[in-house]
């Protein structure tokens, strides 16, 4: 009998839902929440190669060639984050891992001609936190050495760096600002502890 694994799935921070909701009610300047699950795929393909064109067409989104930037589909359902000169993180709607993986694999294999390339489902690898509000940048700046000032970092930018000594992918979603913080699931509790403390410290007395 086939087991519906989606019924067994637990989100890395599901047990902290209420705590985050309460904190966000107290500190609306920087609200923190776990994003609903999404599909995440690690894609590797050689830049400037025919397979890359086919992958972009299969996905309907360009693969950004400028380091540390993101391309999004018009409907916002698909996004591609630059992770390296030949590596991207594809974010897609929850439950689409299999069809998208298959489509990308076909695009890769048809045109690879034996060249290097891969697509791997890493949806369970990282938890996704959303930190948003006028004080969100102040919170991040207490634990991150990358310049997040609007002159250097804005919507559509992403960065792989350390936040409070944990490795993260940080993606600015809009001008509010809202950020997506993608962190290894095993670090999610630790980083949430740190973020909650930082939110309290940065919003105290505001």
């Amino acid at each position: 009998m086939a087991v519906d694994v989606t019924q067994l799935r637990r989100s890395p921070l599901g047990h902290r839902y209420r705590e985050l909701e309460e904190l966000s009610a107290l500190a609306p300047q920087a609200t923190l929440a776990e994003e609903p699950p999404c599909t995440q795929l690690n894609l590797r393909v050689r830049p400037g190669s025919p397979p890359l064109d086919r992958v972009e067409r299969a996905l309907g989104v360009a693969l950004p060639s400028r380091p540390n930037t993101v391309c999004e589909s018009v409907d916002g359902r698909y996004a591609t984050l630059w992770l390296g000169p030949d590596e991207w993180l594809v974010v897609a709607p929850d439950g689409t891992a299999e069809p998208v993986c298959n489509a990308l694999n076909t695009a890769l294999n048809t045109a690879l001609d034996g060249g290097p390339g891969s697509v791997v489902d890493v949806s369970a690898n990282r938890a996704v936190l959303r930190l948003s509000g006028p004080a969100a940048r102040d919170v991040l700046e207490t634990g991150c050495s990358v310049d997040l000032h609007p002159r250097a970092f804005g919507p559509g930018d992403c960065v792989q760096t350390m936040l409070a000594r944990a490795q993260v992918v940080l993606w600015q979603r809009d001008d509010l600002p809202a950020y997506w913080i993608l962190v290894r699931s095993s670090f999610a509790d630790y980083l949430t502890d740190w973020l909650c403390a930082a939110v309290r410290a940065q919003t105290r007395g505001r």
């Binding site: 380091p67 540390n68 390296g84 000169p85 050495s145 990358v146 960065v159 792989q160 760096t161 350390m162």
Partner: peptide, 11 residues
């Protein structure tokens, strides 16, 4: 060469 200037602790 790809990401620009970063702290030594990232390397």
């Amino acid at each position: 060469p790809w990401c620009g200037g970063r702290d030594e602790t990232e390397f």
